[in-house]
Amino acid sequence: MENVIEIKNLKKAFGEKDVLKDVSMVLPRGKNIAILGESGTGKSVLAKCIVRLIEADSGEICVLGKDILGVENEELDEMRKKVGYLFQGGALYDSMTVKENLEFPIRRTQESKNKKEVAEMVEEALESVGLKDAINKMPAELSGGMKKRIGLARTLILKPEIILYDEPTTGLDPVTSGEISELILRVQEKYNTSSIIITHDIKCARITSSEKLKLMMGGKFYVEGTFKELSESDDKKVSSYFT
């Protein structure tokens, strides 16, 4: 099976603090991997290293067969279009309506599209997150869960092959976070994407991880396995997540 992301011996330090200490992992095509861990263990840093929002100190990251650390500006932008990234708060552009938010990536990256095509794409993306009514609202008028859905729709609109979810359920009530987790799974099936889900929410990890669950601790992967394997683990550090 083809791996869409391969990470080898990734290291990153902020000042004297080592955040990522020798991280290696692979993401096979069409699979979802959940990375579980407490806050401050470097999960988000890992995700940001993959899209080069943060420059890694050393190591290798191959995305879709290309060494992402070695590419230059233009090519990097091309690569980034294939990797969707859902931010913690949804990161909607405050000054634009939902419609403009969704149009923005298309307008900026696929200039050839005409208005009608763009409108269709926006509608489709909104439909897949179930928020067609919110099209003319401003981000400030939306709830936290809605913002994340719109954020997801904006990520989906570029039809990425890989989606990185950074804490998709943080700050949401249990019902909404459940809905979001379900949505992630649905999207994965519909768009046939490969995903890394970074979370500290065990419920979300259970729902979304189709393949494996990785537990990160102190800048390293501590253990990996299916949800069932990990939940039955004797290791106190591991089992503390599942109680």
Binding site: L53, A91, Y93, F104, P105, R108, R154, T155
Partner: peptide
Amino acid sequence: EQLDAMEVSGT
């Protein structure tokens, strides 16, 4: 993270 969001979508 709006700027990051723009950055990672290649915009």
